[in-house]
């Protein structure tokens, strides 16, 4: 596969065109917003929390396919997880994307076993200027999680 086809995998285009969990939450929730000023990409999310578990999520935003697909896949991945699990996921995501230094936790022998669909975003690593696009949703989630922990 060419680097371009690896970047724009079908699952990414699908999440870009049909984002999951799009909208906002009505009940009590925490809200966080993120912005990449250099390119104008926007992402925001609502988390509803019971105890230390994320029971529902809604996402908003506009921008490139990578930023929006990353957010949609993230939303799918975090519903029903507790704070520790989500933080572990953020850590693994950032290692996978080479945002943080360390070994890639993804197992090439078992695609999808560690981060599910999110592993499709590995193609972004060949496009360093786009890594911040993939990361936007995750920095926003980090913010939201800090708020949720403060409320807990």
């Amino acid at each position: 596969m060419s680097p371009l086809d690896e970047l724009y995998r079908e699952v990414i285009l699908d999440h870009y065109r049909n984002p999951r969990h799009r909208g906002s939450l009505n009940g009590p929730h925490v809200h966080a917003e993120g912005l990449n000023p250099s390119c104008g990409d926007e992402f925001a999310l609502d988390l509803s929390v019971e105890g230390d578990t994320i029971t529902d999520v809604a996402i908003q935003g506009q921008g490139c396919s990578i930023s929006q697909a990353s957010g949609s896949m993230m939303a799918d991945a975090i519903v029903g997880r507790n704070f520790d699990e989500v933080e572990d996921m953020i850590r693994k995501f950032r290692l996978m994307m080479t945002i943080d230094e360390g070994d890639n936790p993804v197992d090439p022998e078992r695609p999808g076993a560690v981060l599910g669909d999110l592993e499709a975003l590995q193609g972004v690593r060949k496009f360093p200027v786009r890594i911040k696009c993939a990361d936007l949703a995750w920095t926003t989630l980090t913010d939201a999680l800090a708020k949720a922990r403060a409320n807990a």
Binding site: S2, P3, L4, L7, Y8, R17, S38, C39, G40, D41, G63, C64, S65, I66, F127, V129, R130, C133
Partner: peptide, 22 residues
């Protein structure tokens, strides 16, 4: 429905430098 930044990335892979954004 291709976002301008995605257009610019694909063009760059073809060696074509354009600006994308506001």
């Amino acid at each position: 429905d291709i976002h301008a930044h995605d257009v610019a990335t694909i063009l760059d892979e073809h060696g074509v430098a354009v600006r994308a954004g506001h």
